[in-house]
Design a binder for these strands. Structure first.
Length: 355
DNA sequence: CACACGTGGAT
DNA sequence: TATCCAAGTGT
């Protein structure tokens, strides 16, 4: 089938099955670049269902690029808490400031300039150019990779085959309605050409699909084997002062959970669970630490974490040793006011449940 | 190119 | 329970 015909049938399918999403313009309307950009950043490696409430909250608090640029970084991190990949939130804020200061608060309308902005890579630059400005740009996300690998029965594994998939995708991207086309292929990948049990009977490219014809659609795209996730273990320290506040800390700005608030803990290492030795060496202060039963489990992208919990409480008669602890003291009923990632919310829930 | 970087839902 | 995977980017 000709590329033009493929694009036409895809757009026809999209006109019939277009989903209503908070960041999406109504048919024939112009999309707001700020919303498109914000949604694209949030949707990186994150599902539509998860993003929904966060998108609404961000838009309510910061309706425009310049509003977001004027916000405190900590407020942005707090609003982002739970979404994951926290570098996105830092880059989001940095990007808003750059657009406000260097572009008059208006997003550039082309791929090349968008690509220069923090947090905007090849995919997002193409997506914003296409969706917000209706520029011809080839978006290549996980959906498009899957659709292309099946349409052309590409059997070489990702990620090395990615340039080939991009070239194939580029041959179909139309000059007219490139924004709708980009969303159409991604929607197709999200609802029809899905990873398992693809619904080929509903696909506008059913007759053109080489993988379907060969009976191998569900096996594509092929992917290189992933490394096994190691288990790291550590000990978290739940410390309460005489005022009933708990000790928290802010993590370093870069790396895992960068800039987020945490319950202090020992190092997380790939060896046996730390015992009282870790308490002696890495606890924030000397105290009458006692081990709480059970542990907190959490899985990150590249490792499993098992966290034991040691707790101590300073009462009015226990001296002021607690004052030597480094960090911030937060009343337990005001924890929600801080940028606490999910793993640390699990720690908090476990500690409060053990009281 | 390979790896670091979160989380929750589906199977 | 274990594994996969989702509208990727930065280093």
């Amino acid at each position: 089938m000709e590329p033009a015909e493929l694009a036409r049938s895809m757009l026809g399918w999209y006109d019939k099955h277009r989903r209503v999403l908070p960041w999406r313009a109504l048919p024939g309307k112009t999309a707001d670049p700020y919303r498109v950009w914000l949604s694209e950043i949030m949707l990186q490696q994150t599902t539509v269902a998860t993003v929904g409430p966060y998108f609404e909250e961000f838009l309510r608090r910061w309706p425009t690029t310049t509003d977001l640029a004027a916000a405190d970084l900590d407020a942005v991190l707090h609003a982002w808490a739970g979404l994951g990949y926290y570098a996105r939130a830092r880059n989001l804020h940095k990007c808003a400031k750059t657009v406000a200061e260097q572009h008059g608060g208006v997003f550039p309308d082309n791929e090349e300039q968008l690509r220069q902005l923090p947090g905007i890579g090849a995919y997002t630059a193409a997506a914003v150019a296409a969706i917000a400005f209706d520029r011809r740009a080839t978006v290549l996300d996980g959906n498009v990779e899957r659709v292309m690998s099946r349409l052309f029965a590409v059997e070489e594994p990702l990620p090395s085959v990615k340039p080939k998939l991009r070239a194939l995708a580029d041959t179909i991207t139309p000059e007219r309605r490139p924004g709708d086309y980009a969303q159409a292929v991604m929607d197709l990948g999200a609802t029809v050409c899905i990873p398992r049990r693809p619904r080929c009977g509903q696909c506008p490219w059913h007759d053109a699909c080489a993988a379907r014809a060969a009976g191998i659609a569900e096996t594509l795209p092929r992917k290189a084997a992933k490394a096994e996730k190691p288990i790291r273990r550590g000990m978290a320290f739940w410390l309460i002062n005489p005022e009933g506040s708990v000790l928290l800390r802010r993590r370093p700005e870069s790396g895992l959970l960068g800039g987020m608030i945490e319950v202090p803990s020992s190092d997380w290492l790939e060896r046996a669970a730390p015992g009282l030795g870790a308490v002696q060496e890495q606890a924030p202060v000397e105290a009458a630490w006692r081990m709480l039963p059970g542990q907190v489990r959490h899985t990150f992208t590249h490792f499993h974490l098992e966290l034991g919990l040691a707790a101590a409480r300073f009462g009015p008669k226990d001296g002021d040793g607690w004052k030597r602890a480094e960090g911030i003291w937060v009343p337990v009923d005001r924890l929600s006011e801080h940028a606490i990632p999910t793993v640390m919310r699990k720690v908090v829930r476990h500690a409060l449940g053990s009281v």
